[in-house]
Structure formats: structure tokens, C-alpha cells
């Protein structure tokens, strides 16, 4: 068990390191030199060659690559991720400011889409071949085929512009409120983006839950559970218990997909999250922010995978207690 833990953590450490190397290399492989990378276009174009050399020298960008890489690693270790070109503020601070909003959207929709998707999928599997199943399958596949930004726009049209139930813009109203009123305001403005992301995440979850339970229901232990006189509810519990394994994996790994979806949804709802920050940084060529956000995403994804690997034994006794002795 301890060895398993060490190996898992080691593997993910290696993956993380590789990603950091990639993050270091990517901008240096991209067309143009470092000046284009750190400075806005207009400024970069107006520089004389002498000024260019001076800037490169000051930022250590003409140092040999190993030297630069060491400096880059040291920066990461100190939590120092350069300075945003657009905002003129440290990237780390910017990311911290925005990441909370994205966590709210992604966390909320992950929980909702997992619960709804798994419940629907299990129900479909249990009643597979009936009109309940076919109806749910068709409906979920239709929802899944709607691009998130289209869903977001439609929700905006109906509930915000049409019915006026929810505000269409931002995470906060701008008025100074405190306590419960603040919570209410935040929730009210999160409803539509969370709903959009939930619809986007529902499809994969439903399909995995359905096919996992269909698979488990064909297993011999389910037949035995029936034969020994358990009720249908108890039989379903037996099978669902094992079908939860793939569902939990998809939930944690699906985090990545949802974070991706957040970029689009935050744009539709002008929500001040990480996705929108990345998008705006792309438009304004704010590469330091992009690089920092990219790093943050990698760390998140690796962590999600690590949690999944570490949580797996809690669900599966075969991993928790690998065969110690055999009779």
C-alpha cells in the first residue's frame, strides 16, 4: 500500500515536471523572440536593436537555456510568475483573484452533473430497453450535443433577457452588501453559468454511469444476489456499488473538460473567472498570464488525477487490500 502510494505520487511528480518543462519551452518555441513575448506589439515594434539587447540582458533572456530554466524554476518555487503586461500586476495575484470564481462554477456544476448524470444513468441501465431508458438516452444525447456557448446564450435569452429572473452580467452587482445578502447575490448570479456547465457535463457522466451499471448487471454476483432472494433495490445496490468506480473516475477526470467549458461560459456571462482571464489574455497577448494560468491548470489536473488514484482504494477493496495471503 505504501509502495503503491509512493509510486503514484512519484509518477505524477514526473508528469508535473514534464509539464513545467513544456510550459517553459512552449513560448520559446513559438514564433518571434522574447521581446514579442513580454511586451505589447506596439512597444516591441518601436524598439531599437540596442534597446532590445538591453532588455533581453536585463531579464536574463539572453542567458544560456539551462541558466534561464534554473531561474524559471526558482520563480515557480517562490510563487513568482512574472508580471502581467496588461494589468501591470504580478500574475500570481491575478490568478488567485480569479480562480475562486471558476472553482465556484466548476465545483457546483461538477457536483450537480455527477449527481444528476449518475442517477439518471443508473436508472436507465436498470430499466434498459424500456421507453424510460430510450427517452432518457435520447434526451441526454441531445443536451450533450448542444455547444455550451449556445446553451449559455439560450439561457441568457430566456431567463435573463426574456423573463428577467437572473442578471446577465458578472459575478457581483457592484453594490456593497454583506452577509447573507452577499451570498444570495453570488448564488443568483452563478445560477445560469452553473446550469450551462451542468448541462455540458451531464452527457459523459450519464453515459458512463449507464454503461457501467449495464456491465455490472451482467455479472454473476448480480445473478447470485437475485437467486439468494434479495429485493430489486438490494440487487441494484450491489451492482451500483461497483459501477461507482468508473463514475468517480470520470467525475474527477472530467474536471478538465469542465474547466475548459468554463472559458466559454464565463465569456458568455461575462463572469470574472480564470477562463475569461485566459481568454482576455489571449486577445491582449498577455503571455505571462497565459503561461501562469497554464501552469495552474496543469497542477489542478495532475492533482485531480492524483486524488482519483488515491481515492480509488476507498471504493475498491481489491486495491485497498491487495491479496495478502492465499489459503
Amino acid at each position: 500500500m505504501k509502495r503503491h502510494l509512493l509510486r503514484t505520487v512519484g509518477q505524477y511528480g514526473a508528469v508535473l515536471f514534464a509539464a513545467i518543462v513544456l510550459n517553459f519551452a512552449l513560448p520559446r518555441l513559438a514564433p518571434g523572440d522574447a521581446i514579442d513575448y513580454i511586451l505589447p506589439d506596439e512597444v516591441a515594434a518601436s524598439l531599437t536593436p540596442a534597446q532590445r539587447t538591453e532588455i533581453l540582458d536585463r531579464f536574463g533572456l539572453d542567458d544560456p537555456m539551462p541558466e534561464q530554466f534554473r531561474a524559471y524554476l526558482a520563480g515557480i518555487a517562490r510563487g513568482d510568475l512574472l508580471v502581467s503586461v496588461r494589468f501591470g500586476r504580478p500574475v500570481t495575484a491575478l490568478l488567485f483573484e480569479r480562480v475562486g470564481w471558476t472553482l465556484l462554477l466548476v465545483g457546483g456544476s461538477l457536483a450537480l452533473s455527477t449527481l444528476i448524470g449518475a442517477a439518471l444513468g443508473f436508472r436507465s441501465a436498470w430499466r434498459r430497453g424500456t421507453s424510460t431508458d430510450t427517452g432518457a438516452l435520447g434526451a441526454v444525447m441531445f443536451l450533450d450535443a448542444l455547444p455550451p456557448f449556445f446553451v449559455g446564450t439560450l439561457l441568457l435569452l430566456v431567463f435573463s433577457v426574456g423573463l428577467g429572473w437572473f442578471p446577465s452580467y458578472g459575478a457581483l452587482s457592484g453594490q456593497e452588501v454583506e452577509g447573507l445578502a452577499l451570498v444570495g447575490q453570488v448564488l443568483q448570479r452563478a445560477v445560469l453559468p452553473v446550469a450551462t456547465l451542468t448541462i455540458a457535463g451531464l452527457g459523459p457522466m450519464y453515459l458512463v454511469a449507464r454503461s457501467a451499471l449495464v456491465g455490472e448487471l451482467q455479472e454473476d454476483y448480480v445473478l447470485m444476489a437475485e437467486a439468494k432472494g434479495l429485493t430489486d433495490r438490494e440487487v441494484r445496490r450491489h451492482a451500483s456499488r461497483n459501477a461507482l468506480l468508473p463514475v468517480s473516475t470520470v467525475a474527477l477526470v472530467g474536471l478538465g473538460t469542465l474547466v475548459g467549458g468554463a472559458a466559454v461560459v464565463e465569456t458568455v456571462f461575462s463572469y470574472p473567472g480564470l477562463g475569461r482571464l485566459i481568454y482576455e489574455s489571449v486577445l491582449s497577448r498577455d503571455y505571462p498570464v497565459l503561461q501562469g494560468a497554464f501552469l495552474l491548470l496543469i497542477v489542478t489536473v495532475v492533482l485531480a488525477n492524483l486524488i482519483n488514484d488515491l481515492a480509488y482504494p476507498l471504493l475498491d477493496p481489491r486495491v485497498r487490500r491487495p491479496r495478502a495471503r492465499r489459503a
Binding site: 514534464a18 474536471l255 485566459i278 494560468a293 497554464f294 491548470l297 496543469i298
Partner: peptide
Amino acid sequence: RIVDLMLGFPFLMLVIVLAAFFG
């Protein structure tokens, strides 16, 4: 291992960032 990482990574974010770097 590379495949695992790619699968977990936010597709869209990667696409956005790559598109930004490569024009």
C-alpha cells in the same frame, strides 16, 4: 503517461493557449 495527462487536460484551454502561441 502522456496519454493520461492529455486526456485529463482541459482540451479547450490547451487549444486556446496553443492557438495563441502559434497564431
